[in-house]
C-alpha cells in the first residue's frame, strides 16, 4: 500500500457556500472539509444540487456566497481538482478514437508546436489499461457502450493527475462490469491518497463504495460514515416521500 504524501491533511474546504441561478437557490449554506484519501458519496434526490456542488468546486460555476479553498496537493502546490462530467454532454459522433480522447488530458501539459509523442501515447495506453479499455484504443468513441465510454473518460481523468476527483453520477447508466471496475478503481485511488467526491442517487451503491456520505438536498442533511448517516430518518428527510419502501425496511 502506498502511503498518502500528506496523510489526512485537509485538501479542500467549502465554507458557507451558496449558489443561486437567477435568484433561485440551488445550494445554501454548504460547509464541508475533505481530507486526502477520502471517498465521499454526495447522495441526494434529483435536483438536490449535487452536480452544482461538484461544478462549483471544479471552478465551473462561481459561488454566489461563501468560498471554496484548496489545501496543499501532493506536489506541494495547490491541490488540483479533476472533474469528470456526466456522459451525456459529449458529441458521440465526433471522429475521435478512444486513444485521442485519453490524449486530450495532455493538452495543458504538452507543447502546441509538437504532436503527441510515442511516450505520450504510452501514458494514455497505460491509463486505458487501468480502466480495462486498452484494447479499444483505436475505436471511435461512439462505437463503445455507455459503460465503456464512461471508462474512457475515467482514463482521461486519471491522466490529468489530480489530487482529488469530482465525478458526476459515475454509476449511472453503466453496466455491471464497469460498476465493479469503478469500485476497484476507487480503492486503488484511495490507496494512492487521492480523494474522490462523487454524486449519486443510488443508495446501495453509495453505501457500498464510500468512506463517507454527505446527504444533500440544497443544504446538508447529514454528513459522516455511511452507517451513521444512512438512517431511515435522514434518508426520509433528504429524499422526502420518494423512497417509502427503503425507508420502511430500514426502520
Amino acid at each position: 500500500m502506498i502511503e498518502p504524501v500528506t496523510p489526512n491533511s485537509t485538501i479542500l474546504t467549502v465554507e458557507r457556500l451558496g449558489v443561486h441561478f437567477e435568484e433561485r437557490p440551488a445550494l445554501e449554506d454548504i460547509s464541508l472539509s475533505f481530507s486526502a484519501g477520502e471517498t465521499v458519496g454526495l447522495l441526494g434526490p434529483n435536483g438536490a444540487g449535487k452536480s452544482t456542488l461538484l461544478r462549483c468546486i471544479a471552478g465551473m460555476i462561481p459561488p454566489t456566497h461563501g468560498s471554496v479553498s484548496f489545501g496543499p496537493g501532493a506536489d506541494g502546490g495547490k491541490a488540483r481538482a479533476v472533474y469528470v462530467p456526466q456522459r451525456s454532454s459529449v458529441d458521440w459522433t465526433f471522429p475521435v478514437s478512444v486513444l485521442d480522447v485519453a490524449l486530450m488530458a495532455l493538452r495543458t501539459k504538452r507543447s502546441r508546436f509538437r504532436p503527441f509523442s510515442r511516450a505520450d501515447e504510452a501514458i494514455a495506453l497505460d491509463a486505458l489499461e487501468r480502466v480495462g479499455m486498452r484494447n479499444s484504443a483505436p475505436h471511435q468513441i461512439g462505437a463503445l457502450s455507455g459503460g465503456q465510454q464512461q471508462r474512457v473518460f475515467l482514463a482521461r481523468a486519471l491522466m490529468q493527475e489530480g489530487d482529488f476527483y469530482l465525478l458526476d453520477e459515475p454509476f449511472t447508466g453503466v453496466d455491471v462490469p464497469t460498476q465493479d471496475m469503478l469500485i476497484e478503481l476507487f480503492g486503488k485511488l484511495r490507496e494512492e491518497g487521492k480523494t474522490i467526491i462523487y454524486a449519486t442517487h443510488d443508495l446501495a451503491q453509495a453505501h457500498r463504495s464510500s468512506t463517507r456520505i454527505v446527504l444533500i438536498r440544497r443544504r446538508i442533511v447529514a454528513d459522516g460514515p455511511p452507517d451513521v448517516v444512512m438512517t431511515a430518518e435522514n434518508l426520509l428527510s433528504c429524499f422526502g416521500g420518494g423512497l417509502p419502501d427503503l425507508a420502511g425496511s430500514r426502520s
Binding site: 471544479a58 471552478g59 465551473m60 479533476v82 472533474y83 462530467p85 454532454s89 459529449v90 458529441d91 465526433f94 475521435v96 480522447v101 486530450m104 488530458a105 493538452r107 495543458t108 502546441r112 508546436f113 473518460f153 482521461r156 490529468q160
Partner: peptide, 21 residues
C-alpha cells in the same frame, strides 16, 4: 494547426474543455 487541440476539445466536449480551464 496551432490551436488544433483547443478547437477539437471545444467542439467535442465543452464541459471537459471548461473544466480544464
Amino acid at each position: 494547426i496551432l490551436f488544433r487541440r483547443e478547437l477539437t476539445t471545444v467542439a467535442f466536449d465543452r464541459t471537459f474543455a471548461r473544466a480544464t480551464g
